Amino acid sequence: MSRSAAALCLALSLFLVTYAVNLQAPLYDAYAAASGRGPAAVTIAFAAYVAGLMPTVLFLGGLSDRIGRRIPVVTALLLGAAATALLVVSPSWTTLVLARTLLGIGTGLATTAGTAFMIELMGTERSRSAALAVTSATSLGFGGGALATGISLSLAGPSFFPASFAVLFVLAPLLALGIICAPKVAQPQSGALLRLPVFPKGTWIFGATLALAWSATGMIIAVVPLELAMQGLSGWTGAVIFLAIFIGFLCQPIAKCLSDETSLALGLALIPSGFGLILFGNWMQAIAPVLAGTALSSAASYGFVYLAALSQVSDRSGRDRSRATAGLFVYAYAGFSLPVIGSGVLAETMGLIPAMGVFLALLILGAIALASCLSAGSNAPVEQAT
């Protein structure tokens, strides 16, 4: 297999791994209802993804340096199919927690190995293009799974085995075989299998901004659909989740033309603006502001901030690309999960809209603080983990 063909197969594999992550999102309320659970349980199940991902990133982020890039990507594809199969066989809240934990492990393996693998396939002189290929594939995957399930349910009616699941079952083994046949482009390094992430000097501002951006995305994927369901607008869930990521994909070519600092500044302006519109739309029970706010949030999270952060970390990581990528995702997924859990707990006592209001206030404060640091050039170094 040529390097260009391998790069295409890798991009499709990264798409499919992330496609599996939100594939079941339009069915969250159905899984919860089947088990008699409320909003807090749904957000805990959503965050179980991070419970699987974070230890993988922390302790296995450098695994592909030791055993090669192909095995982690193949493992991630098979884990995505297995997790989804569990939900078909036993659709419940408990199974959702287990499935999302497996999906987190798979994403942690694929994203850390995949970024380094893509750069090696395309060449270090094209590292920014490789980063764009990875962010594009994963952005489309994260949004595409939810949209595919939403469309499947609207066409065929309620089901715990929509056609979107079948697509995953067909493609996962085929792409796994393709990755196995991909060429080895770097020799595995010696050393321990378990190695902590590294945080390249001067990149904390990129990690912190990505955490803030992805906190808004996590809320859109996990909390906003609950409010839409309460308003009888659950049919829009797949579209909202797809928009939450797809608009960012469309903005990535624009972000590539900007400096990373400019991309960050633009993202920091769009993040609270977008979520403010979402909150307004939910309060007014109007879908148009929700969709507009989701688009703005997506442009920030998966467009300007995601590409800038991944590009900067890749450029500054030297030979430790997979471990440095793992370090970046420690920031990102802490932001992605913790606010969602906190909001779910608040929603049990004060309601979803007030909980979203508290999150928006914290989002504004965080954006102001990070924008001030960026403006002052205060990207103080973070010590590297060894």
Rank of each mutant, 00 (worst) to 15 (best):
G235E: 07
S343L: 15
L168C: 07
G157E: 11
I364Q: 01
A156L: 09
G377E: 09
G62I: 02
S314C: 07
S301D: 10
L58A: 11
D320F: 08
M54T: 00
P225H: 10
T111F: 10
I278R: 11
V167R: 12
L77K: 08
A255S: 13
G106A: 01
A156R: 15
A146M: 11
A5W: 12
L174D: 08
A239L: 15
R319D: 08
C181Q: 14
L86Q: 01
M54Q: 04
G335Y: 05
L96W: 06
L360R: 01
I105E: 06
F280S: 08
M122N: 04
S154E: 13
G108T: 04
L370K: 01
G351F: 13
V74S: 00
Q189N: 08
R319I: 08
S35D: 02
A213W: 11
I67T: 12
F46W: 00
G108S: 08
L194C: 12
A166S: 14
V198W: 09
A355I: 05
G191D: 09
G281S: 09
L175C: 09
F59Y: 10
L346C: 12
Q285W: 05
I353V: 14
T112N: 13
P381S: 03
R323C: 02
L102D: 06
S234F: 02
W204G: 13
P289R: 04
L109P: 08
T43C: 09
I44N: 00
P225C: 07
S4C: 01
F206Y: 15
G104P: 06
A326E: 10
V21A: 12
V57G: 00
L153D: 04
A85H: 03
F242A: 14
A99Y: 02
G366Q: 05
N22W: 06
A347N: 05
T386P: 04
M356W: 01
A133F: 05
V224E: 11
T84Q: 10
A30M: 05
L194V: 15
S259T: 14
